[in-house]
Simulated assay, not measured.
Amino acid sequence: MNGIMRNKVQRKFKMRGYTLKVEALTEILSFLSRFQDAEDEALDLLLDELQHQSLKSSILDKEPVHRVVSLLLEAEAAAVEEGPHSSDTSRSALRIIDVFDIPKFQYDHVKKIFYEHKGGLPIHGDASAKATLYRDRFLLLLQRLSRDPHFARLAFDTDISQFGSCEISQIQSLVGCTGRRWVMGVISQFEDGHFYLEDLTAAVEINLSNAISFAL
């Protein structure tokens, strides 16, 4: 496979926040060689599936890439074997899974990795469980948004959008800053009746008098 595809693979993985080792890049190129006329679609599918994996680091070696490639090839083989008109009546359409058998993963926003929670999970939470729930949910959304190409940190060989750099900034970092900044937060209404946009670092008052509401 030519150097153009090699550079494209490295660029797309860098936009998602990944760094590839040599053996991982070789595994990806071998996978893409199976799809001569659809390399871009296969690469996007590989990246999307990789985001659902529990990764120890953003620096990828062969093992996690090979695991995802194997899953995709098995799914392709199963689809070809079944065919478009086949119907497997023996396969159950309903699968029951015990909630306590599902592994729980937590996101470390400092190391930017997921790790499996090994401790026991009580049925009833304590007083801080609700706050922890919303905090974990916010961090999950933030890391997912940060991996999006439009909000990822710019690399030297990537194109800048019409809005410039869209990297997410913390609200606390807005103090003393000028110009346009992109932030992510939740809208809260405190006791004084005013609305605020807040993240895990700070809160800033916002004016919603000209906001547009959409009926769902």
Rank of each mutant, 00 (worst) to 15 (best):
F190I: 09
K104R: 15
L25H: 00
Q143S: 14
C177Y: 10
M184K: 08
M1N: 01
E49T: 12
P103F: 11
T158D: 06
A38V: 04
D40F: 04
I102G: 09
Q10G: 02
H52M: 13
H194L: 10
I187F: 04
I206C: 00
F105R: 11
A78Y: 03
S33V: 10
S173M: 07
L25W: 06
V110H: 08
Y115Q: 12
A211I: 05
I59M: 11
E39W: 02
R144H: 09
L94A: 09
A129N: 13
A129R: 15
R95D: 06
D98H: 14
E167F: 10
T19I: 05
F31T: 01
A202T: 05
L154H: 08
T201Y: 06
A93L: 12
H85V: 01
L50D: 01
N7D: 15
E39H: 06
L197W: 00
V68G: 01
A211W: 03
I171P: 07
V183Q: 04
D157E: 12
L145K: 05
Q106N: 14
F31D: 00
E167D: 12
G193F: 02
A127I: 15
E27S: 14
P103E: 08
D136P: 03
D98I: 08
S90D: 07
Q51A: 14
I187R: 10
M5Y: 10
S58A: 08
H66I: 04
I28G: 00
R16A: 08
R147I: 00
L139P: 05
K118V: 14
A38Y: 11
K14T: 09
L94I: 13
F151P: 01
T201M: 01
C177F: 13
Y196S: 02
A38F: 10
L174Q: 01
I4C: 02
K104W: 08
I123T: 13
L200Q: 13
S90E: 06
Q51V: 15
A75E: 11
S33F: 13
L141C: 09
G119L: 11
A131M: 14
V183M: 02
F13P: 05
F114T: 12
V175G: 09
E198Q: 10
I4P: 00
V175L: 14
F163R: 07
E39T: 06
L43P: 04
G119F: 09
K62R: 04
V204R: 02
S209L: 11
A129W: 15
R34Y: 10
D157G: 03
I28M: 04
A75D: 11
I168H: 05
Y115V: 13
I160C: 03
L72K: 02
L47Q: 07
L142S: 00
E76G: 09
E63L: 04
G119H: 12
K8C: 00
S209R: 14
L121C: 14
S70V: 09
L140G: 07
V175T: 15
A215P: 09
N2A: 05
K112V: 12
D159H: 09
L47R: 03
L94D: 13
H66S: 14
S128C: 13
K14G: 04
R144K: 08
F190C: 07
D44H: 10
H85N: 13
R147V: 01
H124C: 13
C166F: 00
S70C: 05
K56H: 14
S70R: 09
D44N: 13
K112Q: 14
F214D: 07
S165V: 01
K12A: 03
A211P: 02
